[in-house]
Structure formats: structure tokens, C-alpha cells
Design a protein around this nucleic acid. Sequence first.
DNA 1: ACGAGCACCTGTGTGC
DNA 2: TGCACACAGGTGCTCG
Length: 273
Amino acid sequence: MPELPEVETIVRELREVAEKKTISDSQVLTDSVVWPDAVSFKNKIRGLQIKTISRKGKFLVLELSKGMMLVIHLRMTGRLMWRLQKGRDKYIRVIFAFSDGSRLIFSDMRKFGKVWLCSKKYYEKITGIARLGVEPLSDFFGYEEFKNVLANKKGRIKNLLLRQDLIAGIGNIYADEICHMSHVCPTSRIECLKDPKLRDLYHAIRYCLNEGINHCGVSVSDFVGTRGNQGKHQHYLKVYGREGKRCRSCKSLIKKIRVAGRGTYYCPFCQEP
DNA sequence: ACGAGCACCTGTGTGC
DNA sequence: TGCACACAGGTGCTCG
């Protein structure tokens, strides 16, 4: 499940291989994953050059020539592959062919992922992009900005961390890790969190996401890099997926509960409510 | 405004 | 072995 660090990993890999290349053709194998319809998608993308590759929250954003944008969201099982990976041919949804003979393959087992081809003007209106919150790793996201984002907000901390319209890019895995690092119970209410704890939470967001990027993401079930390379951050997770195992800090047993409809892991001692 | 529940999908693991 | 079912969790939607 690609979250901000996983998408950032893909962005960095793609910049190495795909930037400045020209898309000579494309093949849409599953119509429902592309926007607009498959025919105009194919017609409009032919001959366009990739100018820049970047990320917005969990969206991958490719700026193309002629004022066009290619936007990709991997959702849960989406992958971008520079080479076809073993056993994945069943799930190929879109293939981009470049003028130098190389190609980029979008595969997605569960068909939740989406690929948009649109003008710069429409790009701002894509549902999801339009209401995206602040970039947590941006230089402009200081502690004061963090407090502003949470001002007058109510609810469980984990629910708020997962809200893309507040802070962009945090998903289930990093939300649990952020809560553990800041010694906050995921079910605690944000309105009850006061200054020293709130500051811990802010620093944990930046630290956990940066560490994820430094380790090229988490490969627990589906995420791999564009060359099929595994991330390494799963070896550093403190709580996610560790139910019944000992907390690395206090040796208590990690518990699993359900919060915001998601499997949620926490240490009942370190993260006492 | 918040939270719960469903929908979108498909593979995996469990229990009977 | 076969079958039913819960679960995985990002996002958008409805409903109370």
C-alpha cells in the first residue's frame, strides 16, 4: 500500500529513467483505470514528452509537453514497472511505450488505481487533488502550521492523520508508526492533546516519513520499486504488523485493534491513553 | 462535524 | 478437498 514515502521512492526512480522521454504510444488493457476514456487517452498522449516528475500527497504527477498532465494514483495494489515482473502480467492495465524503445507498465491487481490524462487546468480539479492538505515534508510545514491545520478539529488522532484534506500522504502504516513514536494512543482525541505531546506528534510525522523515504519505503504486501526492488523500511517498523510481538522500547506485547475501520497496532504501555 | 458503513476489487488465510 | 468468509486498506460516497 503505497503511502508518501513509497510514492516518493517511485518518483526518484522514475526521474532517473523516464524524465525527458517521449511517449510514442500507449496501450490500455483495462479501460476503467484511465480517465478520460481509453480512446482519447491513447490519442492524446501520443507524442508527448515527460518534462518533470513529482508527487503530491500519494499522487504521482508527470508534467507533459503541450500543457498536459499525467496523474497516477496507485491506491493499494498499483505498481509502476520499468520491466515486467514475474507473475504480474495478469494485472497489466496500461503500457506506455517510449520513442527509445523502453516502456513503463502500470499494473494493478485490484483495479483501484487510476491514471488521468488531462490539461493543467483540469488537473487542479481532479477529485482528491483539489482538496489535498499540506505537504508534511515541505519547508513551509512548521509546528505553527501544524497547529493551524488541527485548530478546531475534533476526533481520534488516527482518523485525523489519515485525512488527506488535512495532511497529504499519511496512510495506515505510517499513522500507526507516528502514534507510537510520539507516545500517543491512536484512539486519543486530538482536542485533548496539549503542547508538549502535540509537538512530539509533529516531529514524529516528519521523522517517520523521512525514515520511510531513506529506506526506500515499506514492502509488506504489494509495494516494490519500479525495478521490482523491495523497500527496507518494513525491518524498522515499531508497531505495524507486529501484533503479539514485544515492543522494541518497553517489551510489552503489541496489540491490534480497529480504528477508522483499519487494523491498528499500538503498544498499550508506551501509548497509554 | 464526525463516525460508521458501504462500494470498488482480488488474493490469501482460516475454519468447518 | 471444497466452500464460505474475514481480511488486507485508499478513497469517495451516503446516512444518521
